[in-house]
């Protein structure tokens, strides 16, 4: 008997209702964690500010040719955070730098989590020599110094945002792979997977309908931590000079400051804001991630 469309819709509705319920439960648990809430609030605010930068500020003021201010001036009424080596307002630079840093952080994290989840699920689902090889590779990449690998990659590829994203993504996927593999293994050991297989479910059905929905929440919690890591990695790479010079991220601003002698001149207003930006964003992501992990991993509950 083939199910009628009505029945299918009924099943779907039940699934969605359950998912909604589960999400509400997760949210309630999450809201109990004050750190997590603070982190989330901070992130929402920062992302909104970054998105609204073209509306709230004037991009043309970032052009060297349009500026009339003196270079390297300490904070004043005109430039709240002082000016940089070309006389551009540091506040404006940091505001626009947030867009680049966040964009790269999110994209690199997505790439890394995508590779990691795919490798982890495949390794756990298929087993055998494929699993051995994949995990061998994962362990190998896990111990390699990520930054050194990313430096190597961005040195040999053409400069640009894409290269940085690729370098960070390729260097940082192994932790996600281990997580996804462990979770897939526990899911696939459960009886309902055996039932599905007995009813004739193929690899695609098992992975798509059963494994993925169970793995994704944990991976999502983990992603917040990966984004934080990616933002730090991006700033370090840019500071070392492999970033995109035409669109300075927070790391790029710091590189310009360092190279133009801001340290020896004691130009603290040039060095502090981009770094504080990084610390706040990373801290927010870390707080969110820790709260989410506590919610999704009951073993950790009551520890923190």
């Amino acid at each position: 008997m083939t199910p009628t469309t009505d029945e299918t819709r009924g099943v779907r509705a039940i699934t969605w209702a359950r998912r909604k319920q589960a999400t509400a439960g997760v949210w309630r648990e999450f809201a109990r964690d004050r750190g997590g809430l603070i982190g989330l609030g901070g992130l929402v605010l920062i992302v909104l500010l970054a998105l609204l930068a073209p509306v709230l500020t004037d991009e043309t003021a970032l052009e060297v040719t349009n500026t009339t201010a003196q270079p390297r001036q300490p904070p004043s009424a005109q430039a709240w955070l002082g000016t940089d080596r070309d006389g551009i307002s540091v506040l404006l630079l940091v505001w626009w730098g947030a867009r680049v840093s966040l964009l790269i952080g999110f994209s690199a994290a997505l790439l890394s989590v995508f590779i990691g989840t795919a490798v982890g699920i495949l390794a756990a689902h298929f087993g055998g020599w494929l699993s051995t090889t994949l995990m061998r590779f994962t362990d190998f990449f896990l111990v390699l110094p990520t930054l050194v690998l990313a430096i190597a990659l961005s040195a040999v590829l053409p400069r640009g945002i894409g290269t940085i994203v690729l370098a960070i993504g390729v260097a940082s996927w192994p932790t996600t792979a281990r997580l996804a593999r462990a979770q897939t293994l526990t899911i696939e050991a459960r009886p309902y997977i055996e039932r599905a297989k007995a009813l004739g479910a193929g690899h695609r059905h098992v992975i798509g309908k059963h494994v993925l929905p169970a793995v994704l929440p944990l991976v999502f919690a983990h992603t917040t931590l990966v984004v934080a890591n990616s933002i730090i990695a991006e700033s370090t790479l840019s500071f070392l000079g492999v970033g995109d010079p035409s669109r300075p991220s927070w790391g790029g601003i710091l590189q310009a400051a360092f190279n133009s002698g801001a340290v020896s001149q004691g130009a603290w207003w040039y060095l502090l804001p981009p770094g504080i930006g990084i610390v706040i964003v990373v801290l927010c992501f870390t707080l969110c991630g820790r709260a989410l992990e506590t919610v999704l991993n009951p073993r950790l509950r009551g520890q923190r």
Partner: peptide, 26 residues
């Protein structure tokens, strides 16, 4: 610890350099 961990190390280095300018070699 969490705050120090959220800091890019090079930035912490820059801050210490400014803070201890003159006390320690640059």
């Amino acid at each position: 610890a969490l705050t120090l961990w959220s800091m890019p190390q090079f930035w912490l280095g820059l801050l210490l350099l400014i803070a201890f300018a003159g006390v320690f070699p640059s």
